[in-house]
Design a protein around this nucleic acid. Structure first.
Ligand SMILES: [Zn+2]
Ligand SMILES: [Zn+2]
Ligand SMILES: [Zn+2]
Ligand SMILES: [Zn+2]
Lengths: 165, 165
DNA sequence: GGAGGATATGTTATAATGTTGCAATGAGAC
DNA sequence: GTCTCATTGCAACATTATAACATATCCTCC
């Protein structure tokens, strides 16, 4: 099974199909919403998934350029804006970086576990966390619109390898 | 009562004493830790509290300069680094901004409710949220080191005033 | 109270990230 | 085909953050 979306990606997972799957999903989703997954948007999404971890906007930009595309910062940011609006990627605030979302169908703000050693980010969707956040907001009369949850630490692998001190 | 730290500051609270209190606390805390709350550090902390909401580093810089201090970006960032290390201010990732902490004694990562209308940020310390985050990390074998929780939405006041659409 | 080491600040330059504005292009509607 | 609107190209600029190195200040120890 390729459970790439609910935990840290294992090093031996079928990553090619994992990227392909994400793009296929995006295509279907855009079609069903009457939106255009243009060449740029599609390529940016692919690049985000290829890394399978948080990528910075300027890293994406460099790659696009190295592939001969005429690209400037707005090119990338516009594509990322689109992908975020459609729930296809999330932004990780702590890293100023972007990561593909495995569950773009159901809108949600991501909850992330970010490894400070290997830089990978695992997205989780924990109802208990969500419930606690919602309740806290309700208790204070706060109208909740967006949630940022980013946990930093050591992933199981890096913990075992004794990295990170 | 001046419960500035557990919710949105009310518009009629005694803000002068609120700033003074924060600085006094910081002084005591630094003394007890054998650290120096220098003029710059102290002034930056004051400015953060005066705003009583998220402030950007360059806004602080402008103020320092307008007061005749010789200040450059590193001046402010170094002061903010120190204050963060001592738990006297938190950084709000979504805003690239800094806010004073009302409970600097007990180390904690802040949990914030940020109003998109008025820009105020309320720090809460909700055990239920903390528990949910910790449990999620444990369940995945993730060694937790830092938590970012930032909720965005409408504060009670702005909600009443019918702002924010 | 003066030398020496650690801490803190001054200063300049630069890196990294993100936005605005406007012109040109291209896809879909009719 | 033409009109319209979404998308892209492009140049400039804005904002946020750090690097590197010199100078100053504090504190300790003698
Ligand atoms: Zn993969
Ligand atoms: Zn790791
Ligand atoms: Zn106040
Ligand atoms: Zn508000």
């Amino acid at each position: 099974m390729t459970e790439a979306s609910t935990a840290f990606p294992s090093s031996d997972h079928d990553h090619g199909s994992c990227v392909a799957h994400a793009v296929a999903k995006a295509e279907e989703l855009c079609r069903s919403r009457g939106l255009r997954l243009t060449e740029i948007r599609r390529r940016v999404l692919e690049l985000v998934w290829e890394r399978h971890g948080p990528v910075g906007a300027y890293a994406l930009l460099d790659t696009l350029r190295s592939e001969g595309m005429a690209a400037a910062p707005p090119t990338v940011y516009r594509a990322l804006d689109f992908l975020q609006e459609q729930g296809l990627v999330h932004r990780i605030e702590r890293l100023n970086a972007f990561v593909g979302c495995g569950q773009p169908d159901a809108p949600h703000s991501g909850q992330f576990l970010i490894c400070s050693e290997c830089g990978l980010a695992a997205e989780i969707d924990d109802p208990a966390i969500d419930r606690a956040l919602t309740q806290a907001a309700v208790a204070l009369g706060f109208e909740l619109r967006g949630k940022t949850v980013e946990l930093e630490g050591l992933c199981p692998d890096c913990r075992r390898s004794g990295n990170g001190r």
